[in-house]
């Protein structure tokens, strides 16, 4: 019997799913090797039975479950718990699921503040907040804060080959290894050492490079003074190649989350700057260093100062 797969997306943008579809023709092999039993983006299985008479939320049993997105409201939580119950191996797919991702940036505000801002922004004709919306939690959680997770696959989105390799390995019951290096360790730019560090600047002009030369002939962006989060970010985005943002000659912003799963990108980056003698206070917006990893209680509303 073919192994069964469940896919769910919670507080997510669908980029993780699209990344998987970018796997190309190998996807067809996958469709052949497994039986997908629940996947709202691609198939019509419903939560409460196909005739929708309001049966309780239920999902089919599966060998492998993939969940993208974090947990922001009660229904996400119910779906996640049902996924955990029904799936033998649960994969947290993407940085939202593993570390909160961009949506966890809102953890700097209370849910009430956020609702107020959203429902009064712009040209809204009257100030009301919706009443029948699913109950929002106090903040955005990564899924491992709520249920046990068997495999964490960060990346915003994770690389298609990596998603594919992990699913294949699980289907064939093979061992697999996730990348453990930082983005810098996979980056080919030239590093000249501490003396060359320029003070930090905002990304308002392009990096200095020769357009006819490959990335391996460009000086490290951090050394050029452009804040690059390569040192404090898990690598793997470029596969065996140059990290993706660097291919576009743009600094890393940390989308694979911390190098160590429990790490703190803000603290690590500040520490990296300080130990290289760079004035960390010149950074305009330090909290943005946690823009992908604000779950696990790292981003909180500011304390009220008297």
């Amino acid at each position: 019997m073919k192994p069964k797969l469940n896919f769910e997306w919670l507080h997510a943008c669908s980029g993780c799913e699209i990344s998987m579809l970018n796997w190309g023709e190998q996807l067809l092999d996958l469709f052949d090797q497994v039986e997908i039993v629940h996947f709202p983006l691609l198939m019509d299985h419903k939560y409460g039975g196909q005739l929708g008479e309001g049966a309780p939320l239920s999902l089919p049993e599966a060998d492998i479950g993939l969940v993208s997105g974090g947990v922001a409201h009660q229904e996400h939580l119910q779906v996640l718990q049902e996924m955990r119950k029904q799936c033998r191996t649960l994969i947290a797919l993407g940085t939202c699921a593993t570390h909160g991702g961009i949506p966890a940036m809102r953890n700097q505000w209370s849910t009430a503040d956020t609702l107020h801002t959203v429902f009064t922004a712009g040209t809204v004709d009257k100030e009301i907040s919706p009443s029948s919306a699913p109950a929002f939690l106090d903040r955005v959680y990564s899924i491992d804060e709520k249920v046990r997770v068997d495999v964490s696959l960060p990346g915003c989105p994770p690389q298609p080959q990596l998603i594919g390799a992990v699913i294949k390995a699980l289907v064939n019951k093979d061992a697999f290894q996730l990348p453990q290096k930082s983005v810098c360790e996979t980056c080919p730019t030239i590093r000249e050492g501490k003396k060359k560090m320029a003070p930090v600047q905002r990304f308002l002009h392009n990096a200095d490079y020769d357009r006819d030369q490959p990335v391996s002939e460009m000086q490290c962006l951090l050394e050029q003074g452009l804040v690059c989060m390569g040192p404090v970010t898990a690598g793997g985005c470029g596969g065996k190649d140059t990290p993706l943002c660097l291919q576009a000659r743009v600094p890393c912003r940390g989308c694979y989350g911390p190098v160590q799963p429990g790490g703190n990108q803000l603290l690590d980056m500040m520490n990296a700057l300080a130990s290289n003698g760079i004035d960390h206070r010149a950074l305009v917006d330090r909290k943005s260093l946690l823009r992908f990893s604000g779950a696990h209680g790292l981003l909180k509303p500011a304390r009220k100062k008297n």
Partner: peptide, 11 residues
């Protein structure tokens, strides 16, 4: 110094 600044950032 880093710790003191970061404490405030982290709430």
């Amino acid at each position: 110094e880093v710790i003191t600044d970061t404490l405030e950032d982290l709430g």
